[in-house]
Computed example of a mutant assay.
Amino acid sequence: MCNKGETVKLYVVGVGPGDPELITLKGRKVLEEAPVVFCPSTKGHSRALEIIRGFLKGQKVVLLEFPMKAQNPKVHLTKASEVILKELERFKTGTYVTLGDPSLYCTFFWIYDHLREKVSVEIIPGVSSFTAAACAIPLPLVLGEEKLALIPVLYCENLSTYINDFDTLVFLKVKGKIKDLKEFIDVDRYRVFYIKRATLPEQKIWEGLEALEDNDEDYLSLVVVKKCRS
Rank of each mutant, 00 (worst) to 15 (best):
K86A: 12
G16L: 02
T24V: 07
Q59L: 14
K92D: 10
S46A: 03
I84C: 04
Y105G: 05
G100F: 03
K86L: 10
R53L: 05
V75H: 11
P40Q: 11
V61G: 00
G44A: 00
L64T: 07
L104P: 03
K29R: 12
S103I: 15
E21F: 09
I51A: 02
L56V: 05
V97E: 01
P67K: 14
D101E: 04
L22G: 05
R47Y: 11
N72K: 13
P73A: 12
Y105P: 04
K69I: 00
S103T: 12
T42N: 11
F91Q: 06
P102A: 13
T42E: 13
N72W: 05
Q71S: 14
A48S: 15
K86H: 07
I84H: 01
M68H: 11
G18A: 07
N72V: 08
L63F: 11
E89C: 15
H45F: 08
S41N: 09
F66R: 13
H76E: 12
L85G: 05
L64Y: 06
S46R: 04
T98Q: 03
L63K: 15
G44Y: 12
Q59T: 10
Y105T: 07
L99V: 07
Y105S: 10
L85H: 06
G27W: 01
P73T: 14
L63C: 05
K43P: 06
P17R: 04
V62A: 02
E32K: 09
P67W: 13
S103M: 14
R90Q: 11
L85S: 09
Y96W: 09
I51Y: 02
Q59H: 09
V61N: 02
D101N: 10
V75S: 09
L63A: 00
L88D: 00
M68P: 00
G27M: 08
A80S: 14
L25M: 13
L22W: 07
L31S: 04
K57L: 13
G44M: 06
T78E: 14
E82D: 05
T98S: 07
R28V: 15
N72F: 05
R90V: 15
K79Q: 14
A80C: 08
V30I: 15
T98I: 09
M68S: 05
K60R: 11
P40F: 06
V61Y: 01
P40A: 01
V97G: 02
E33F: 15
G44E: 09
K26A: 09
V36K: 00
A34E: 04
